[in-house]
Amino acid sequence: MSVSANDNNTKASLRGFLAKYSVLIAFAAIVIFFAVASPTFLTPANLFNVLVNNVVMLAIVALGLTIVISSGGIDLSVGVSVDMASMIFVMLLAAGYSGVVGVAGGLGAALIVGILNAILITRLNISPFLATLGVLFIGQSTQQLATSGGQPIYLTSGYAADQFNAIARTALFGMPTPVIVLIVLAVAVHLLLHRSVFGRYVQAMGAQPGVAWYSGIRVPRELSMVHVLCALLSGVTGILLSATVKSYVPLSGNAFLLDAIGATFIGTTLSRERKPSVIGTLLGVLLLAIVKNGLLLVGWNFYWQQVGIGVLVFLVLAASFGLRRAAH
């Protein structure tokens, strides 16, 4: 009797263990698989390429979403923040302003998106999902109207292009600027979310909004901050994006939305309470980026990559949710 109970316990704890670390196990398995399948996968040059091209921009958007999702909300308008920052940044540089003014203008545009979200959510009591969905629609219209229907703005030579290069191509300590930016932002968001009073308020609002309110947290103020931060982080991605591709392509930011949500939620499987965390999110982003890159290296085309990523995310979620359900 007692033996079988013991046996059940070990089984349950094994399942719990597998559920908790399913992402890490999947991650390791995928890295090993691609390392065997493709000789170029584990080369420093390739890993560097993955980091710069597939990780940095998505990760910064996902950091913003991590804060929002921690607060119990969602932001569907991150793409708009990316695009608006990119648009204003490129327009300012094209008009001959310096990089500093361009960056400030771009972040300002993202800030406006964030403030709009904050007002809709905290003052008008609209649920974050619907508020940011509305802002997404309005943002798309704004871009189409501003670019006569979605004409990209290219800047290939001259003063503005030099300013782009200064942002995207310079290196500090042997690291390209975007990577440095990501590291600084990730550390900052980690400290903010997991080590500060603000972070504790955010987590409280996410866990129990009613209780958070009754315990004296100024929910509207903190929630506004959450959405403004998310928009600003997305704005940083917008600036890095347009500096890297030396152009502004309307409505390109939306591509980040679903991947960033996916990465953040993959990250939540790391914690027992399914809380988002900066480390989990970064792991989720890395997982998506490595799968994309690996599938490309073993010869899958772009279309199959999407199927592969969908299946993989599905399996990771199934493992995490299913095993945990079985463990209970």
């Binding site: 679903l258 199927v307 592969g308």
Partner: peptide
């Protein structure tokens, strides 16, 4: 769940 299936179907 439907986000993951979205990717599969679109792909």
């Amino acid at each position: 769940a439907t986000l993951a299936v979205l990717n599969v179907a679109a792909g």
